[in-house]
Design a protein around this nucleic acid. Structure first.
Lengths: 345, 345
DNA sequence: CTGAAAGCGCTTACAG
DNA sequence: CTGAAAGCGCTTACAG
């Protein structure tokens, strides 16, 4: 014989609260929603019972009834990257503040997995989707799959879609970094790393080329080096770069990890970053300030971007017909030792 | 006058599918759940309509009806730490595989925020909770708050609670690291970093002390140095350490970040890590393999821990009365250059 | 200011 | 093998 288990079976509902406080379910509901219609005395009585019974609101039931949703699907291409992890925290914080919750999915940059995760999350009827898309996402296909679902796309543009978009000011960031190196006297500057078919890499390259152009410095096409945006690949690509004659004295790197890999490559060749060769990164990951020499880079505040994405999505949910927005968040140049002191030639 | 908006208002439900395929709602439900009771012909007809109408299953409604839940609250103390981010990815992957979804909350090590986040997530009726608790969590209070909710605690023990617990084999890991340094000939070895009141730090210290003891080497109490488990604090504490005479030749560090901070401290003093001083870390973060000299450390596979935590929780949900479990996941020593070559004295 | 009634989208005995 | 009916926990007009 199984012992009766301490009310694990039946949950406390508005019914129980109503019964215990001698009012109807409707009144309890009004109390829960903070309606001014209910008398202070009654409210107090009900609230006491809520506490006494340990009632916990069933938001799913309420959502069903009102045909609303208090969740948001958050799909991240690479959560192991601190940039996206911080972004996710920002989203989570902003949502909790608005009584919502984030349904987490991560795709590991796989388009197939992204689709599976999206399918699974959709069944939980999110109010909308914040999507940091995997590389090579098929826009039209996704648009068909998601229909009129509110969506905010983060970081990478998805060609062929009409959704709100939030990204960093990649172009201006790369421009600032390049101008900084130019102002120190560098002329032979590479743009190093990233995949040339990603929108963020293209934009950063444009910023770099623009600054070079404005300064009247020719950018050798060999100075645009592609490589996967991580340390291992970057170190490898740096080795290759230094096997040829190029006369470079500085590099604007696609991001901090690329810059840190570049740094390792320099050190292998006995070159001192910041002294023999100047570097800039992008993102301002915590390590940028910690490494020696500290890395000049662009601060992008991913946590704040997360909050911003959540705001954008909630606005879109409220007004599905508002015009589509493109928000380009500013970035800030942080000058540190890796870019060195002015050159005297 | 507002134009009629393309069926954004009304969602397709089982009713619509039933009507379109000329069966009852019940039959559609059976098809959805893959019941063998329904005739192949009928099933096909229904499935065609499901596809044609673009029906998407409303899991929340089903959960309400069956008094079940397909979500799991995932509360992480520090998502910006790649160790926990990887853990979260593992949880997410395992849950999606089981038709569940993770409700993400992060606390930033704040007990107050943890409570707020828990309260918010509870209203979404998760089937259970995976909790990587903030430091100084009040066990009895939390136990009261969560009642009989299924909970799996990760990484840090919460005194005064009776929940399933998953953690790393901290003791054995630190023992392995210490034995490794001893085998290289080191005798004056510090245990460096971590907060002495955290359970993981205590366990690692015990492993260290056990190995020292077993080797018949006295561990000077001054060799137990406390510091916050990050690079900045560790570098600072390393400076302090080297201001006094200690005769140390090696340190078992609380984790990789502490070890990397220690390394910076060594370099400031002109000491070469791996040659003049041996180091070990804990976690095997990606940087451990990338840094020079590469860091000897303990691989803990956080992604797999996440999957494991999800499994544990789902089992607990299925059988709330099973005995409480403590699962201690193995760790693996990865020897790299930072621990140097055998000492010849 | 409060109560009775209907319904959100689903599932599940229970008849047929 | 299929249909009619009840109900999960909530909210919201609508009467009183």
């Amino acid at each position: 014989m199984r012992p009766a288990r301490p009310n694990r079976e039946r949950k406390i509902t508005v019914n129980d609260v109503a019964l215990a406080s001698g009012v109807s379910r409707a009144t309890v509901s009004l109390v829960l929603r903070g309606s001014p219609l209910v008398h202070a005395k009654t409210r107090e009585r009900v609230e006491r019972q809520i506490a006494a019974l340990g009632y916990v609101y069933n938001r799913a039931a309420a959502n069903l009834r009102t045909r609303t949703s208090s969740s948001v699907a958050l799909i991240i291409n690479d959560l192991s990257n601190p940039f996206f992890a911080e972004f996710a925290m920002g989203v989570g914080d902003a949502l909790v503040g608005a009584g919502h919750v984030a349904l987490l999915g991560s795709t590991g940059e796989s388009v197939e997995w992204q689709e599976a995760v999206l399918g699974s999350l959709m069944e939980h009827s999110p109010a909308g989707i914040i999507l940091s898309p995997a590389e090579h996402t098929d826009g039209p296909h996704l648009q068909r799959m998601l229909g009129h679902e509110p969506v905010v796309v983060f970081n990478r543009e998805i060609p062929g879609t009409q959704w709100d978009f939030l990204a960093l000011d990649n172009r201006n960031g790369a421009r600032l970094a390049t101008e900084h190196l130019l102002s120190l006297g560098h002329r032979r500057i590479a743009f190093f790393g990233g995949h040339a078919d990603s929108s963020s890499c293209q934009e950063r390259r444009q910023g770099y080329l623009g600054a070079m152009d404005a300064a009247g410095v020719a950018a050798d096409p060999r100075c645009l080096v592609e490589c996967a945006p991580n340390r291992v690949e970057s170190r490898q690509a740096t080795r290759m770069l230094f096997q040829q004659e190029h006369g470079l004295t500085a590099a604007v790197c696609y991001n901090d990890n690329v810059a840190l890999g570049f740094k390792l490559g320099l050190m292998e060749r006995g070159l001192r970053p910041g002294l023999d060769f100047a570097l800039t990164g992008f993102d301002d990951i915590p390590e940028a300030a910690q490494t020696t020499p500290a890395l000049t880079t662009l601060a992008v505040d991913p946590r704040e971007r997360g909050r911003q994405a959540a705001e954008l999505l909630l606005e879109r949910v409220r007004d599905p017909d508002a015009p589509v927005r493109r928000v380009i968040a500013p970035v800030r140049l942080v000058v540190r030792d890796s870019s060195g002191t002015p050159l005297h030639d």
